[in-house]
Amino acid sequence: MINDQLKSDGYPLPVYADGGMRLEANFEEKFGTDILSEPARRITLKMSRSVVALASFNVNRRHFACTGVCIEFDGSTSTTRVLTSASLVRTSGDENEIVDNLEIKVCLPSELCIIGKLEKYDFCYNVAVISIPMFRSNRPAILVDAPQPEVLALGRVFKSGKIMAAEGSVTGERCKFGCKELKISTCKITKAGIGGPIVDFKGNVVGMNFYDTEGTPYLPSKIIMKVLRSFDAERPVAAGITKKPISRWPLPKPYWYYPSGHRHRTVVRLNQ
């Protein structure tokens, strides 16, 4: 039963049947803390109404899981648009292809899961928009091009539906991903927070988070709004790819290890 569950979640099996091993770099790992400053707690409660979790599945096997944020409601079609990372649907962090026959599930703040549909995507900036029917967010996110030094990263775990928040600040460091527009914050997130919003302490979305072990890269709202405008203008899907090289969006793959008192861990060879 455990092996079947691991396979359906898209995880490798450990070489040894040892209960002392732990799975690292998984999509269920939470981030942040329940002890937040009062302003951060207030913003988290406010924004939790628009933060969702997403997962993509291929033939009952999970391909990817991440966070998204509701950005608008279309009254003519009764659908809500969710901003998230294109890693949800792409074959890998380096490739310019979509996985075939994906089913996208969206976990709402109410913990109800509904089927979503890939609407648009751009691999240059690793942005995707998912539409979900018959759901209207009470508080769609507002994207602003006015970054603040103190910020809050938000996320939601797909399986548990738990909202997560991590406080931090914007740094002047450069990101190694190859996308020069990315900025870095000290908010420590996990893979579950990919695609989630980074907000200021007014509740405005100033960017979308990606994952790295050394600081958290985020795509500023200025670039996101540019991508969304290209979507709304009905330019070709993945518009801009021919004008700019595809940036690399590497992610650590899940692996098993033996916990120790040190941060450095011994990686155990996996079954293929």
Rank of each mutant, 00 (worst) to 15 (best):
L23Q: 04
H262Y: 14
P140A: 06
M47D: 03
V205G: 01
W256K: 06
S160Q: 08
E24N: 11
Y257D: 04
P245L: 09
E119P: 00
V69E: 01
L143Q: 03
Y258R: 15
D145V: 08
G116V: 14
E111F: 15
G207S: 07
A128C: 13
H262T: 14
L112P: 04
E150M: 12
P140F: 09
D4R: 15
K183I: 12
D100W: 05
D34P: 02
K222M: 11
R42P: 00
A238F: 08
P147G: 10
L23S: 03
S169P: 00
A192C: 09
L13A: 01
R61V: 15
W249Q: 00
T186L: 11
E103Y: 10
V15C: 03
S260T: 15
V144A: 06
W249C: 01
L112M: 15
G240T: 10
I132N: 02
C70H: 02
T216W: 04
S247F: 03
F73M: 02
K244T: 10
L6G: 01
E167M: 13
Y11A: 01
K226E: 12
G32N: 07
E167S: 11
T186Q: 08
C107S: 11
K159T: 11
G68Q: 03
E103S: 12
I98Y: 06
G215C: 10
W256H: 05
K30C: 08
Y11D: 00
M225V: 11
C187V: 09
L154H: 01
F158N: 02
M225K: 12
F123C: 07
H262A: 12
V89D: 03
S8N: 06
F57Y: 15
D100S: 10
K46D: 06
P259N: 09
F201D: 01
D4A: 15
D200R: 10
R139D: 03
H262F: 14
L6N: 01
N209P: 00
W249G: 00
P236Q: 12
H264Y: 10
S160V: 11
N126L: 05
C175Y: 09
R139P: 00
I163W: 05
C179F: 09
K120M: 15
E29G: 08
I189S: 01
P39N: 06
I189M: 03
S185M: 11
K176N: 07
G168A: 08
L219I: 12
K188I: 13
A65C: 04
I2S: 03
S260L: 14
K46N: 04
N58K: 15
F27N: 04
R263E: 13
E103R: 14
I35K: 13
M134F: 15
K120N: 14
D9V: 01
E111A: 13
A128H: 07
